[in-house]
Amino acid sequence: MLIFVFMKRYFSSSPISHGFIYVLLLCAACALPRSSFCQSRPSGLELAYLGNNIWNPGLKISLNAELPPDSLKTAKGNRKSLQKSHRLDVGFFADPGAYRGLFVNAGWQRKAIYPNRYFISWTANPLGLFRSFLHDTYAVSPAGEISRVFLPGRLYFAPSFQAGLGRISKKDPGRSYFARLNMIILMPYNTFVMPLLQVEVGCAFPLK
């Protein structure tokens, strides 16, 4: 919350905030093709129910590109493996009374896998775009002229963060089940930002 207050103080209500975000996106777009991100090969697919505000239904599909794992000792002396991967998420949800949202995120995930096949994961997606789709929208100009807006909605820069837990299937080690908590931050939203809280429940499949 303190970070939000700081950002509100220095970035809101000035063109700097919009410029800052577009420069960030431009830098990311330039750096991405040369990064290891685009050179990694997808190794897993995730399908999940996405609940924006829990009960606004949606769907999320993610591609995972796993990197070589690390292994660490747990407090009890067991070994847990640390799996790192690159991710690309595409999802949407419907808030039936108000709007529908479509988003795409890219970033990194770390997964700590324990010997009992349970795992915890945390993800940072610094790159993201969100498009809202609104119901019938009419624009009223300062002169009072009214026109219907085609494909009404707004595009936002939308980095996201996730934390979750899950379990790897006993029969098929490539398959797993998980539950996660997501936060997507839409910016600039009104005069500042808007966090969206989401839950997701789904399963992961290996890509052969």
Binding site: G97, L134, H135, D136, T137, Y138, A139, P152, G153
Partner: peptide, 16 residues
């Protein structure tokens, strides 16, 4: 029972 959005001066505001 309808949601109508008003776009005005940079804001999209729902009217239910």
């Amino acid at each position: 029972h309808k949601t109508l959005y008003l776009r005005h001066a940079g804001a999209d505001m729902p009217a239910y």
